[in-house]
Computed example of a mutant assay.
Amino acid sequence: MSVPAADRGTTTVADRAVRRIVERAATEALAPGEVRTGRTSASVRGRRARVDVTVTLPYPLVLDESGERVRSHVADRTALLTGLAVPSARVRVRELRVRAAGEGSAVAEEQVAVEEAAVAVERAGGEPRARRPWSPRRAPVAVAALAAATACAVLLYDVVAVHAAGRAPARWRSDLMDWLTTHGPHAGAWPGAAAAFAVLCLGVWLLVLAVTPGARGRLPLRPPLPGVRAVIDRSAVASLLRDAVSGLPGITRVRVRVGRRRATVRAGLAFGELEPAHRALTETAERALASCGAARPPRLRVRLRTEPAWRAPAQGGDEG
């Protein structure tokens, strides 16, 4: 008797195999050698796969457009080679690296893609609205769910033991009921009121986590097309600002801090005039910050201080 092919066995695609395909697909999205992968994860559930890859992109380029190209290529390539549906493919831009000489053709291709995206946006009726990414909040949800599941399991075990096996109620449950009877909020005792207030605070905290976007370490980028979302890590923006201002003459000890609403650049001046150096530092940082493509660029604050060995430049009239 012949058995149908569909009933002879199953084919399982391991998470590790999907992860290898995702890493290779990310490097194929742009020109050869431009994309470098970092931490990659893949989770296969039935016929669906969720993938997450961290990449390093070359500088300069348009981050939102390039990130979307990497994400779409990873999703399509993984679905084609594995036969799985890829409803969620997340790409995180962790770092930027300076392009080597001879990579100008890739920059031209990026500029052409940006122009085409701008035309498509204009035809669609204006610039799409950028939104902050939502955080999965895995740790708080896991802790709360584990604590609730443990408490319910212990209580259910004791109730079943009493009604099914005829055992006496556990002493801890009897003591707890007696304590709640005499120390509840209606009795005016402070322990019960404190416990009720703690439970209230926990509930409010969970509600706040549920309705706020989170992902505070990422900044939303200007979407090139409707329905396209792109983000960049604040650490990548800080590295971009640091590399841009470190090459200025006389600038040393550059420290950059990028927040959600403000970017602060602190630097030291080893030689040269203070005012022109401060002006050049501000203009360079503004250009670098604008090139990131952030939907709501953080406000820039520049602080320049002279080093201990700095001396004021000699004036022409003081010579001789």
Rank of each mutant, 00 (worst) to 15 (best):
V86A: 09
V159H: 12
E116R: 09
R167V: 10
D52P: 00
L57M: 09
A312P: 06
R131K: 05
A193E: 08
L281E: 10
R222E: 00
R132T: 05
A148F: 04
R222Y: 00
V254G: 05
S174D: 12
T150G: 14
G247M: 01
P298V: 07
P220Q: 02
G188P: 07
R171E: 13
A210P: 04
P133G: 06
Y157H: 13
Y59N: 04
V204F: 15
Y157W: 15
G184F: 01
M1H: 14
R137V: 10
A170S: 11
V228S: 11
T212F: 02
T306F: 01
H163Y: 15
W134M: 03
G38E: 10
F197N: 02
R167S: 11
V107W: 14
R255D: 12
D52E: 12
L202I: 10
E283G: 06
D233R: 12
R92E: 11
R71L: 05
A147L: 10
E122G: 09
A49K: 05
V141F: 06
A153I: 00
R216H: 07
A14T: 12
G272T: 11
S88V: 12
R262T: 13
I21W: 08
L241Y: 12
E110G: 09
P298Y: 05
A147H: 03
D318N: 10
G67Y: 02
L240S: 11
M1E: 11
R260P: 09
Q111S: 03
A193F: 00
V265D: 07
G126Y: 01
D178C: 11
A142C: 01
A277W: 14
T37K: 09
A285Y: 13
P249D: 08
R255Q: 11
R218V: 09
R167G: 06
E95C: 06
L202E: 08
V237P: 06
A142Q: 06
D233Y: 02
E109D: 15
S239V: 06
R167F: 12
G259V: 05
A170N: 03
T282W: 08
M177F: 12
G125Q: 00
A130F: 04
S246W: 05
S66Y: 01
L221H: 02
V91R: 12
V13A: 04
H183T: 08
A295R: 03
R50A: 10
V62H: 15
L304A: 01
G293C: 02
D76W: 06
R257M: 01
L180Y: 02
S72T: 07
A230N: 03
T11C: 02
G227W: 14
V254Q: 13
R296L: 04
G125M: 02
V35T: 15
A108M: 04
G214W: 06
R296I: 00
L219G: 03
S41K: 08
V112K: 03
R299F: 04
R20Q: 15
R303A: 08
L300P: 01
P58D: 09
A106V: 01
A130P: 03
R39K: 07
G259A: 09
Q315L: 14
E23V: 11
L155P: 01
P58A: 13
V44G: 03
V62T: 13
V114W: 07
L96C: 10
A195I: 05
W310Q: 01
R260F: 04
R255W: 04
G227F: 09
E273W: 13
A314Q: 13
R311K: 05
E122A: 12
A290N: 10
A164H: 10
R69M: 13
